[in-house]
Amino acid sequence: MQFHGDDKNGSGLVPSSRTPLLLHACCGPCSIEPVELLRREGFEPTICWTNPNIQPVAEHDRRLATLRAWAADVAHVDVIVAGDNRSAWETGVAPHGFDRAARCRACYALRLAEACRTARELGFTHISTTLAVSPYQLFETCGDVLAKTAAAYGLTPVWRDFRPYYPEATRTSRDLGMYRQNYCGCRFSAAEAAVERHEARDRRKAEREAAHAAASVAAAR
């Protein structure tokens, strides 16, 4: 287990008025709003990185590096690198393949279990996740997994709907020049995202062609 960062809000100490919370993070851009909003609510987050789903390894390392740079230079929040059990992901998650509902539930369970284990080991009482930011995640499923996993580890889940802040997080991350990925993380999500982008391009093309045809008909009248 590795720690990164030694400063909380520039003071070197967790403010006594805030409740320490371990925040599982899937990437840097999705961490922006949760850290800020949780601080406003009275928590002091420490980020926990455990994402064995992210493939290939170079993509995993790039996302982690982006998170660490933002955490140290902008957010002033500590980052804990917990376990990334890729073998467990391959045996417990990958067999679900393109059954997204089953695959994502198993993936959430694996990652959040490691985050909860880390939280209990380090003495945290509260746990949350940045997976509640992206509108592309299975929100209700993730919330259910977090609640059950936190209870199993004797932790208090802090589940918030951060999705309304996704556009703001997108703008902020772009303004900061942060690396932004275009798929959730695993090879199955990469393939699904590629299909969705292709279908979106086809729809836009069809709409342009329809508009052009309508304009041509109108001009010929």
Rank of each mutant, 00 (worst) to 15 (best):
E59G: 01
H60T: 10
H60K: 13
D61A: 11
D61R: 13
D61G: 10
R62W: 08
R62L: 07
R62E: 03
R63C: 05
L64D: 03
L64N: 00
A65C: 10
T66W: 04
T66P: 00
T66R: 00
T66Y: 01
L67G: 14
L67E: 13
R68H: 10
A69F: 03
A69H: 10
W70Y: 15
A71K: 01
A71H: 01
A71W: 04
A72M: 04
D73N: 15
D73A: 13
D73Q: 15
V74G: 11
V74R: 13
V74D: 14
V74N: 07
A75K: 05
A75V: 14
A75P: 09
A75G: 12
H76E: 03
H76A: 05
V77R: 10
V77G: 07
V77N: 03
V77A: 05
D78F: 07
V79Q: 03
V79D: 05
I80M: 12
I80A: 12
I80L: 15
V81K: 00
V81M: 02
A82N: 06
A82T: 09
A82S: 14
A82E: 09
A82R: 05
G83A: 01
G83L: 05
G83T: 09
D84Y: 10
N85W: 09
N85T: 05
N85M: 06
N85E: 11
R86Q: 04
R86N: 06
R86I: 01
S87L: 09
S87V: 12
S87N: 06
S87R: 04
A88C: 11
A88G: 07
W89R: 02
W89E: 01
W89V: 02
E90N: 08
E90K: 09
E90I: 06
T91F: 00
T91G: 03
T91S: 11
G92C: 14
G92T: 15
V93D: 14
V93G: 12
V93A: 06
V93I: 10
V93N: 08
P95S: 11
P95V: 13
P95D: 10
P95M: 09
